[in-house]
Computed example of a mutant assay.
Amino acid sequence: MSKRDYYEVLGVARNVGAEDLKKAYRRCAMKHHPDRNPGDAAAEAAFKECKEAYEVLADPNRRRMYDQHGHAAFEHGMGGRGGPGGPGGYSDMGDIFGDIFGDIFGGGAGGRGPRRGADIGYVMELSLEEAVGGVEKEIQVPTLDECDTCDGTGSDDGKLETCATCGGRGQVRFQRGIFSMQQGCPHCGGRGQIIANPCGDCHGQGRIENVKNLQVKIPAGVDNGDRIRLSGEGEAGPAGAPPGDLYVDVRVREHEIFRREGDDLHCDVPIRLGQAALGDVTRVPTLGGEVELRIPAETQTGKVFRLRDKGVKSVRSRHPGDLYCRVVVETPVNLTAEQRELLEKLEATFIGEGARKHSPRSSTFIDGVKGFWDRMTS
């Protein structure tokens, strides 16, 4: 079966930069890693495929050759260092995986001792009021918890045996051409020992599937996209290794009145025609209650008024932002006969030579239209 394009495997464009390439590999490897998909042959194959793709594309020389010749660049000795995973190339799972994921899994496969548990992500939706004021919420997170029966050891009786594959060293040595290399023992996972009598509840894994209930305190002022880390609340580590972390990603729902931009809030304030023409004082909502907004006479629709310190005090700032109120002049509807008559009388006063002074924007628009047509017909 022919190999898939390496860029397609990682889901990136051919001009992807080194940093985005690394992020794409992290996503692919975390999704298909054997620790997260025990016994899944398809996941293991996908993991090896994305690892192979990254090994080539992360190396500028090998990437250049791949861009020119495709997979043929590493056949029949063209690659110089050997094809991905072949003689002279990289080893199976223990090299770049350890470099990139050491901070997540507690060290690469070449290190001695069990890896820490995987990190977990959780998306929490909040209202604007909850995000601004802070809130404490209970969440349920599916995870792998430490087995209570064996206290996470995976052993029914606590007895361990020396690994026959590595002789208790946790490392195995192998030959690649003229080079002698070593990596973590695949049989014991680098621990040097194996479980003699596996626990009946967790089958020697030291972990069981569970739903964890947690109280999460969201600080006041968080915004959409903020992330909160709960140390040690991720998946339990294998064979008693330390647990991973839980990352709560904040998503703030759209608000029916306010729109947040950084520490500032924005809203539209509808006013009547008479209020805009004569001026008035109206009340507008804020997250702390209603306040007065003074509308000057002859205010035009779209005018923005700034209310200082009526915005949001974020988790990163000492002072709250501002509230920006954009007034929108509403056209009256459902008029009574009396109201219609009064408006008709008012409208009649705007007809004639003196009408232009009452509608400056309309006059400017009309002059612009006339100038446009004069240029078109000249």
Rank of each mutant, 00 (worst) to 15 (best):
M1Y: 08
R4K: 12
E8H: 01
R14G: 09
A18Q: 15
E19G: 12
D20Q: 15
K23S: 01
A24P: 01
R26H: 10
R27L: 12
R36T: 01
N37C: 09
G39A: 12
G39V: 06
G39E: 09
A46D: 05
K48I: 14
V56E: 02
D59I: 06
N61W: 13
R64S: 06
H71G: 00
A72P: 03
A73S: 07
G80S: 08
G80M: 09
P87V: 14
D92E: 15
D95K: 10
I96F: 15
D99C: 07
I104D: 01
A109F: 01
A109K: 12
G111V: 08
R112I: 11
I120D: 02
S127P: 06
S127M: 02
S127L: 07
G134I: 04
Q140H: 13
V141Y: 03
V141I: 02
T143W: 02
D151H: 09
G154L: 08
G154V: 06
G158S: 12
T162D: 14
T165K: 14
G167V: 10
G170S: 13
Q171V: 14
G177K: 13
M181V: 08
G190E: 05
I195H: 09
N197H: 08
N197Y: 08
C199I: 02
C202I: 01
G204N: 02
G206H: 04
I208M: 05
K217L: 10
N224R: 08
D226I: 10
I228S: 02
A236S: 06
A236C: 03
G237A: 03
G237R: 02
A241K: 00
Y247P: 06
D249G: 03
R251Y: 04
H255D: 15
I257W: 09
I271F: 02
L273T: 14
G279C: 04
G279F: 07
D280A: 11
V281L: 04
T282K: 03
T286P: 05
G288M: 11
G288F: 05
V291S: 11
L293A: 01
L293S: 03
T299K: 11
G302H: 12
V304K: 12
L307E: 04
R308F: 13
R318H: 14
V327E: 02
E330A: 12
E330K: 14
T336A: 10
A337K: 03
E341H: 04
L342T: 04
E344S: 01
K345I: 09
A348Y: 10
F350E: 12
E353D: 09
A355K: 00
R356V: 04
R356E: 13
S359N: 15
P360E: 14
S362M: 15
T364L: 15
F365G: 13
K370G: 14
W373R: 15
T377P: 08
